[in-house]
Simulated scan of single mutants.
Amino acid sequence: MTAPVPPPAGPARIRPRHRWLGLSFIALVLLPLALIAAYLFGLARDQYASDVGFTLRQEETPSAGALAGGLASMLGMGAGQANTRVLYEYIRSPALVARVESRLGLRAIYSPGWPQDILYSLPPDATIEELTRFWLRMVRIAFDEASGLMSIQVRAPTPEQATAIAAMVIEEAQSMINGLNTTARADAMHYSTEDLTEAVARLRAARSAMSSFRASTRILDPAADLSGRMGILTSLQEQLATALVENDLLSETTDRADPRRRQLDRRIAVIRSHIEDERRTLGGAAPAGSADPGAPDYPELLARYEELTVDVQVAEMTYRTAQAAHDLARARAERQSLYLATYITPTRAEMSEYPRRFLLSGLGFLFLTLSWVVLVLIGYSLRDRG
């Protein structure tokens, strides 16, 4: 036997759950969408955008002194991304907002639509914190860290106000950069001046010590004085050799009692005594009873002189380096190191582009519809489980 065929399904009928779905769609999607559209097209004020673009540059041409002395790296050539990041944070800071407010009156510009336009208007008595948060919504900053390019879009109720705010941002950014330049130049000159002052004091002390040494020893150059002593010793040795030769010649023709031989013997003894004294003087202090009891201690004298000479040479080298660094710092201080290069001047809008009413309405409809679908699926899932 074949199974009985079930009767065909009857016509579809509207059930209560279908009515609830329609009512929920109206309440959760159409009604909020109508409110959003009413706000965007009826209450939201038009906004005009002004665009501006700039980048931070740094003078990288070293001076002639830096090229000659190789000191350009001492003062940090090359613009780093840190300065651009500082500028980026400054534009977003309450400090800049307060300066623009004091000069243009941001509260007066953005408060006329309050309280009807609660999203694109500002309370007249807004605090600086509220003004800063609103500023971050009205001023959009795009910063490319790879190229260092920064673009800013300013939105305001009128084209003139948007352009004025954008120009004010550029002006305040340039003022901040000028402040950085002034601080950098002051620091560079301050530190280089301190180094130069220390180098001058060190050179003066070294030369003063050398002058005191020469005044106390009454010797300008111990090496030259020692060379003279060596000349005396050489002369005595030559005289001794001559006297010995004469004595040998007389010994062949005369006896020991000859007066000439006794005189030569005394002369040889005196010359040998002087040679011994000179050798002791060159090796240390002069011995007691020598012909020159005031002779200096040359080993100690030369050691002290070499030490003072090295101090003077090091002090002179330090002074030349400090002087070159000071001249380089002064040359860099005479020109502006950092500057803003504007590649897009503040533009003036001819039509209102914001708020983007149709785009926001479409996004609102999409979000509300998705939310409604999720709620419906959750409801049906709970119903099936029940």
Rank of each mutant, 00 (worst) to 15 (best):
Q237F: 00
L366H: 03
T84H: 07
R15N: 07
G69H: 12
L240C: 08
A205N: 14
L106I: 07
E171R: 15
G386N: 11
T369M: 11
A12T: 09
P8R: 13
S337C: 00
Y380V: 08
I109P: 03
D248C: 06
R385S: 09
G78Y: 09
S211Q: 15
Y380T: 06
R229W: 00
A27G: 12
T182R: 15
I344P: 03
D248L: 13
H190F: 04
E172W: 04
R140C: 00
S273W: 00
D221G: 06
E276D: 15
Y305N: 06
A108F: 00
L23K: 04
Q323Y: 05
A329C: 06
N247D: 10
G113C: 07
D292C: 09
A44N: 11
F25S: 08
L370G: 12
M210W: 08
E145G: 04
S371C: 10
P4E: 08
N247S: 15
A162F: 02
S290T: 09
G22P: 03
D187N: 15
L56P: 02
D125N: 15
R266G: 13
V374N: 10
R202P: 05
L244W: 00
L203M: 14
R15M: 04
A66S: 15
V154C: 02
L236P: 02
T342V: 13
Q336V: 05
T321D: 09
A333H: 02
Q116L: 12
D51W: 05
T347W: 00
W372I: 06
T132E: 06
P112H: 06
R357H: 04
T254N: 08
I26Y: 06
L226W: 01
L264V: 03
L302K: 03
L370Y: 03
V169E: 07
L360H: 12
R260I: 00
T182N: 14
P222R: 05
T309G: 08
A288W: 00
E171F: 07
L28N: 09
Q313N: 12
I14F: 10
M77T: 13
L87C: 02
Y319N: 06
D117W: 05
E238F: 07
M150W: 02
L282E: 05
Q313T: 11
D125H: 13
G379C: 07
I219F: 03
L21A: 08
A64M: 11
L96V: 08
A341L: 12
W114V: 02
Y305C: 02
T318I: 02
L87R: 01
P32R: 10
F213P: 04
F54S: 01
R17M: 05
G294L: 10
E130V: 03
L375S: 11
E160T: 07
P157A: 10
I152S: 02
A331P: 01
V52D: 05
I26Q: 07
Y88W: 08
L21P: 01
P32Q: 10
L203P: 03
E172C: 08
R272L: 04
E198K: 15
D292S: 13
